[in-house]
Design a protein around this nucleic acid. Structure first.
Lengths: 342, 342
DNA sequence: AATTAGCACTCATAAGCATCGAGTGCTAAT
DNA sequence: ATTAGCACTCGATGCTTATGAGTGCTAATT
């Protein structure tokens, strides 16, 4: 890659920042005004022209200003962006926003998504702790009525799920006992993703007892485990996207896309890096060609488990958003770890 | 209200139905084509003209077809609409859609909202059982670690909430015992809406014990009770609204509106009727002037407690949606009641 | 009195066209 | 390497005109 000289970098940075601010193609004069460069507009034009041939900028049409290309944004994010630390204001907003939820991991994730969406005016995506390292830590069966019980499941990551369960047969203390035996033998300490109806049936039969009466309980446990293992992705602030004029009518299509679960799961799958920034077509989906995705992992007790991020127009405020996402994921990871400490 | 003759009714109904189908103003010839009326277009024009002066129809401009006015929709819904029972197809779709969630009230509500949104291509709103008749039925404290416990709260309506709670002091069995004493004395059987920090403090002090160590538990219980009492309103399928062309750019504003919690709570507040249909400006909010709201209550064990409904353009398919909402709420009510039976 | 044919009229929409101006690219001078 | 100067491009804006769906009215018909 041909290296850019100082002034070209400065110009590229200014175009990106100005475009992010105004949303309008930026012209040579405007650029001089907003940077204070001590050169003439003709010089700037020459440089911009070169930046176009190098692929960092684009012109919507011959007589318009310049707009950053995908490559331009990439260069900006990788080399030109200054602020790499979150600023005071955003940090405080985040702290204040999620403090109320600090005790409970699930609420924390939800809240983190909401806060991030508000802060960035983008859509946020957040995934509760999950993955293969998530083990089942505790299962509790609480009798409610003769035929009803509630089941509570807790994982090693602090995710808590509960649901009611209706039994065909009366819930005797014997049945409870048998239930705990099975749980003890076949479920506790296992990864949530491994629990399924088939595997439990085998155990249910081996521990002798009324396996017929046990059926609804087993089914409910499986379902709880499944819903925990899948750890649904939360989409927050999606209506923020409608406010961005660059989407125009395609906002509807984008929202449609984000509301499907398969693609969004894919979108969140990060690589090895702790924070992933995908600009425009770097995303594998056509529907995201005008969007950027910034996702970061957070870890609970050393395991990488959850993800939080934003989706917004390529013309998003990277300089503010990237540090915010990074800070927020760190914070969430720390808070959850702390909540689970002995 | 001047009564309409048979033919005018027929014409009004046809305009409404045709407009609902196509979204275009309907003209006199088109109307003859789609009704098979045995009169000339001039006659239809005269009738339509009268329907305009009576306020049932509107013309966007002099040389356009007619569009139902709010009053027109109202008359249609009250007097002209034929199908008052859900049809086979929709019934099956609903049954199939929520069957998987039948055991657990909360999941049932969530699922009902999703199904309804899919079915109607509108946004759905659903509220879990709640209200003053909702009593706290059970509270469970399950120790997890030395400093952590999980709390589970069940209401008389089958709503189950759980969260983790972190304690400053170790969770001794004595503390547990004291906790249950307080719960027994001051919480069980009380309406969820009455539980608050102040009232609990009084009790915590009266029952002697380490009220300082108890604090986080009390706070968590209050928060659970509060979140249950408020029973957040679920908004589903809001992206469906973007597909309706009549909203155009104002769809963004509408979504924004729906994502605020105060107004939507107001929107759901029904009157005495089991099903409420509010068309256009019959809603108290400017943002809903082009929308209709159809909400119905469902009852659990005799008490009216929850609400499920749709929000969509005034030009929605009332004939299909109204029976669907009615059927769905009945079904949900029955299923929850059944799930809670002894 | 109700219905209908006929026709002039209205008005949103689209198409065509001149104008404007922000911003460019190029050339020649510094 | 930079800059002043200038012709050029092309979207945006605003105006005029043509089109046509659909109406409202009048006079004839049943």
């Amino acid at each position: 890659m041909a290296e850019l000289n100082e002034r070209k970098k400065q110009i590229l940075a200014a175009v990106v920042e100005q475009y992010i601010k105004t949303g309008e193609p930026v012209g040579s004069k405007e650029l001089i005004a907003c940077t204070g460069l001590k050169v003439s507009s003709a010089t700037v034009r020459n440089d911009m022209s070169e930046l176009v041939s190098l692929g960092y900028l684009e012109q919507p049409h011959t007589s318009a200003g310049r707009v950053p290309s995908q490559k331009g944004y990439r260069y900006y994010v990788d080399h030109l962006m200054r602020a790499r630390e979150i600023d005071e204001l955003n940090r405080r907003l985040i702290d204040a926003g999620i403090s109320s939820a600090a005790g409970d991991p699930e609420r924390l994730i939800t809240r983190a998504g909401e806060v991030l969406a508000d802060l960035t005016k983008c859509a946020s995506i957040s995934k509760a702790p999950g993955g293969d390292s998530m083990l089942i830590r505790k299962i509790e069966l609480v009798p409610i009525g003769v035929h009803t019980a509630m089941l509570v499941l807790l994982t090693s990551n602090g995710i808590l799920k509960s649901r009611l369960c209706r039994l065909d047969a009366p819930l005797t203390s014997k049945l409870c006992e048998e239930f705990y035996n099975i749980v003890q033998a076949a479920i506790l300490g296992k990864p949530a993703s491994e629990i399924n109806v088939a595997s439990m049936q085998t155990v249910a039969v081996s521990v002798d007892g009324d396996s017929f009466a046990m059926l609804p309980l087993m089914a409910a446990v499986c379902e709880l485990a499944r819903s925990t293992a899948q750890s649904r992705i939360l989409l927050g602030g999606s209506s923020n996207l409608l406010g961005h004029k660059e989407y125009g009518a395609s906002a509807a299509e984008l929202l449609e896309f984000l509301n499907k679960s398969e693609p969004i799961t894919e979108v969140m799958r990060g690589g090895a890096r702790p924070i992933e920034i995908r600009i425009g077509r770097e995303n594998m989906y056509r529907q995201l060609e005008n969007s950027s995705v910034i996702v970061a992992k957070y870890s609970v007790g050393g395991d990488d488990t959850g993800t939080i991020g934003v989706i917004g127009p390529t013309r998003m405020d990277y300089e503010r958003i990237i540090p915010s996402v990074r800070y927020l994921t760190d914070l969430v990871g720390r808070l959850i770890t702390q909540a689970l400490e002995e």
